[in-house]
Design a binder for these strands. Structure first.
Lengths: 168, 168
DNA sequence: TGAATATACTAGGACATCCAACGGTTTGGC
DNA sequence: GCCAAACCGTTGGATGTCCTAGTATATTCA
């Protein structure tokens, strides 16, 4: 990372776009690039907070999802859909979480194709503790003003709906 | 990626946060999660557009950066700083771009420690063509309204400055 | 019943990122 | 000048993600 730059590289890129014949898409380019960089910064903070718990963000998301599941268990396919990741990524994450004793696989009672995943006691405990860490170390001071938080939720919500994430 | 969900999973997560004792950080959690998901969607679009050119986003960024360099070349360290990635990632990207004949390494004339990277003719051509593709396939219809684009640039700019990306 | 569909696992590959450690180079205090 | 410290790029190893394809099994529907 190193020291801060003296100029905003994204603002520079926008200027380059404007001066090289693409003024009409310069602003959207800058916005999209800013989303990329922001995600990178946030992910680094989250991963740093989760590291002491032996979790990555992907695995934490699965843990958190399970901790909120009504019945305490979830089909893998459902987890894949809710977290918007490839089924093999779920398999991969469950493999590691299971090896760590945090979740367990069990057969679906009526549908022999699907396997259910549920938290172990240790998994439930770790979900609670790691969530507390994220709340206090990341979410409590996100780097956005409260008004900007609301704006982001609205703008990105519109975007995600528009992109086909959900129909609501 | 499958059919749209009937409910917004991030809104559900926010409700879960509010109902499980963390109402004060529920909104920032939702905003940050939305940034994550938005980045994922945008990155997928960008990668799909770049794939026919044999480029990834990381490699495209380096190509674009070089195409705007005043002198046509850039020290690796400088590229690392401007793109906000670790030096080893630049080495990795340059290795692949060099193998593809798109950039070339050359020694710095006065400082023997640093190596310069510059575009080849083919690299410059590909940078131009892939930028045109991104402009027409992604940036021209980003999924944000023009007003939201401005909002995003402002909000995320504040965030990045606050995070120490640049001092401006 | 038979054909199409759905779920999950496996294996393999392509990438990006981070870390620690290493040579070669330059810089700056003495 | 000299030598220690700092700097630059690279290497090798480890993690982790995503994707494609193929397989096995189970379910659904014509």
């Amino acid at each position: 990372m190193g020291t801060p730059l003296s100029r905003d590289p994204i603002a520079d890129a926008r200027r380059n776009w404007e001066e090289h014949g693409w003024p009409d898409v310069a602003a959207p380019m800058a916005a999209i690039t800013a989303v990329m960089r922001t995600q990178q910064i946030l992910l680094a903070r989250i991963e740093a907070t989760l590291k002491p718990f032996g979790l990555t963000f992907a695995r934490y998301e699965l843990l958190a999802l399970l901790s909120f599941a009504r019945k305490g268990s979830l089909p893998m396919k459902k987890a894949s859909a809710l977290l918007q990741v490839h089924p093999t990524s779920i398999t991969n994450a469950v493999d590691r979480l299971e090896r760590a004793g945090l979740v367990a696989r069990s057969p679906h009672p009526t549908d022999g194709r699907t396997t259910l995943i549920e938290l172990t006691g240790e998994g439930r405990s770790l979900a609670k503790r790691s969530t507390a860490a994220l709340n206090s170390e990341v979410f409590s001071d996100p780097g956005f003003s409260p008004g900007d938080v609301d704006q982001l939720i609205r703008i990105l919500g519109d975007f995600r709906r528009n992109a086909g994430d959900f129909a609501d």
